[in-house]
Amino acid sequence: MGKKNRNKNDQQPQQEFIFQKKNYMFMFLGVAFIVIGFILMSGGGSDDPNVFNEDIYNFRRIRLAPTMVLIGLGIEVYAILLNPHKKRN
């Protein structure tokens, strides 16, 4: 009662992931750049609130770290838009 006849030829469509291994590799690389950027940005504070520490304005925290974060975000966008199925000639 209510049973459907199923043949061996009836197959469910295979599910395919949106991203492939290549996409995930680039995503991991982008996350690594972002994490390194935030690590480079940290620190530089002073233990004494009455003393100002000039290290907060050094090259690493003002230029290098934000550049690393932006590069990481760019890599993430590339990883999302990358089509791993595209054939190269």
Results as ranks from 00 to 15, higher is better:
residue 1 M to Y: 08
residue 80 I to C: 06
residue 43 G to I: 12
residue 26 F to P: 01
residue 32 A to L: 15
residue 3 K to L: 13
residue 50 N to M: 09
residue 35 V to F: 11
residue 59 F to H: 04
residue 31 V to P: 05
residue 11 Q to I: 11
residue 60 R to D: 13
residue 69 V to W: 02
residue 14 Q to R: 04
residue 20 Q to F: 08
residue 87 K to E: 15
residue 46 S to V: 03
residue 82 L to M: 13
residue 49 P to A: 09
residue 56 I to A: 01
residue 85 H to R: 05
residue 57 Y to R: 03
residue 77 V to F: 09
residue 26 F to G: 04
residue 88 R to P: 00
residue 63 R to W: 14
residue 55 D to R: 01
residue 48 D to A: 02
residue 47 D to G: 15
residue 75 I to K: 00
residue 14 Q to E: 15
residue 33 F to S: 08
residue 23 N to H: 02
residue 15 Q to S: 14
residue 57 Y to P: 02
residue 18 I to M: 10
residue 17 F to S: 14
residue 60 R to P: 01
residue 58 N to F: 06
residue 62 I to L: 12
residue 71 I to A: 14
residue 27 M to K: 01
residue 25 M to Q: 06
residue 7 N to T: 07
residue 68 M to R: 02
residue 25 M to F: 10
residue 32 A to Y: 05
residue 76 E to I: 12
residue 3 K to C: 11
residue 86 K to C: 07
residue 76 E to Q: 14
residue 75 I to Y: 00
residue 66 P to M: 08
residue 40 L to S: 09
residue 28 F to S: 10
residue 52 F to E: 12
residue 67 T to K: 02
residue 39 I to K: 00
residue 61 R to P: 06
residue 41 M to L: 11
residue 74 G to Q: 02
residue 62 I to H: 02
residue 45 G to P: 01
residue 31 V to S: 11
residue 56 I to L: 10
residue 87 K to V: 15
residue 69 V to S: 07
